[in-house]
Simulated assay, not measured.
Amino acid sequence: MDFLEDESAAPWWPAPGLVQHSAGYALGRYRDELFDRHRIEHPPALREAVPKRRAEFLAGRYCAARVLERLQANTAVGIGRHRAPAWPAPVVGSISHTADRAIAVATRAPGVLGLGVDIEAELDPVTASELRPQVLGGDDERWLEHPRLSPQAALTLMFSAKESLFKALYPSVGEYFGFEAVGVTALDHERQRVGLVLNAPLPGSRWPRGARFSADYCHPAAGLVATLVVAGEAAASF
Rank of each mutant, 00 (worst) to 15 (best):
H82R: 10
V50R: 01
W13L: 13
D100L: 00
T98H: 03
A222T: 14
V135T: 03
W12C: 04
K167E: 04
G232W: 06
V77T: 14
V67Y: 02
R193E: 09
E145R: 01
D36I: 02
E33L: 07
Q72M: 02
F238P: 04
G80Q: 01
K167I: 09
W87V: 07
P133H: 15
A65D: 00
A109M: 05
V173T: 06
A73Q: 15
A15H: 15
E41L: 10
C218P: 00
Y25C: 13
W207P: 05
A109E: 14
Q72G: 06
S172R: 14
C63A: 07
P14A: 15
F3C: 09
D124S: 07
W13C: 04
L4K: 02
P151T: 15
R81K: 10
V230K: 00
A26F: 09
T227S: 15
L115F: 07
A226W: 00
F3N: 07
T156H: 03
V229T: 12
E41P: 02
S214D: 08
V194G: 10
H97I: 05
R83I: 15
P110Q: 14
A102Y: 08
G78E: 04
E141W: 13
S150T: 15
P110F: 13
E56C: 08
E130D: 13
L18W: 05
Q72F: 07
R81D: 13
D140N: 10
R66A: 08
H42I: 06
T185M: 03
D124E: 15
A64Q: 04
L34C: 05
C63D: 00
R108I: 12
L4G: 08
P51F: 06
A153S: 09
